[in-house]
Write a protein that binds this DNA or RNA. Structure first.
Length: 221
DNA sequence: GACCAGGCACATC
DNA sequence: GATGTGCATGGT
């Protein structure tokens, strides 16, 4: 809906400056290779990162954190390895869907998957069952360096609680709110999303709509 | 034991 | 087009 206030628009960039000033660069994504970033993006769907780390460690130990090997492995074996990340049957299929897409459409090359027109790449990623808007944007931004803002549960919560968006705001609407009020810079989008997640984790540990003692107020007003 | 965590697809109305 | 439900482990 059109619940964004004018002062809210200014707040978008002001929050970024405050958060960055207070907490500094976050150095995201927490993953060493592009493939690890992509796998992490799928595994972290509705899941605490600590559990994703356990799954990634197991994948490394099993030598499965390589596109060709993940593509070849049996889905049941993959599911067993990612068990700690939760929803393991669903996510194993999603990882296999992704590697199938990678090999069938891009010859197994992450370079080819991530190179080119951003909108076209996004559409390609969204065509994979199990990759929705947030996962696609995470992959584009953190594995590909494309300037796409990532909206997640924390982003929504903060925007709604501080009156910048309505409860019913959709993904694209929230994404536009941020992208239209920041300069188009992948480094800024990278740090901003990371800072939102960090502060959300540290200070905002409840889903309940009101958080009167929210320490973020200090930074977000 | 209840609640939550960096979503998404699918069924149903 | 909106709303509801299944998926699952592990930490607080």
């Amino acid at each position: 809906m059109h619940c964004v206030k004018d002062n809210g628009k200014k707040a978008i960039s002001a929050w970024y400056e405050s958060l960055f000033g207070a907490f500094g660069p976050q150095g995201w994504w927490p993953g060493r290779t592009r493939f690890e970033v992509i796998v992490g993006a799928i595994l972290t769907q509705n899941t605490a990162w600590i559990n994703v780390e356990k799954a990634i460690t197991r994948l490394k130990r099993a030598r499965l954190l390589v596109p060709r090997r993940m593509h070849a492995v049996d889905v049941a074996e993959l599911a067993e390895q990612i068990r700690p990340a939760g929803y393991f049957n669903v996510k194993a299929k999603r990882l296999k869907n992704f590697t199938a897409h990678l090999f069938e459409k891009h010859d197994g090359s992450l370079d080819r998957l991530l190179r080119g027109n951003t909108a076209g790449l996004r559409a390609g990623l969204l065509s994979v069952s199990g990759i929705g808007p947030e996962t696609a944007d995470s992959i584009l931004l953190y594995a590909g360096g494309h300037p796409e803002f990532v909206v997640d549960a924390y982003t929504r919560r903060i925007a709604v609680r501080h009156g910048l968006a309505g409860e019913d705001a959709g993904y694209e609407e929230l994404k536009s709110l941020f992208m239209e009020n920041l300069r188009e810079d992948a480094r800024v989008f990278n740090e901003y999303h990371a800072l939102i997640v960090k502060t959300g984790k540290d200070f905002c540990k409840t889903k309940k709509p009101l958080c009167e003692s929210c320490p973020l107020k200090k930074f977000l007003n």
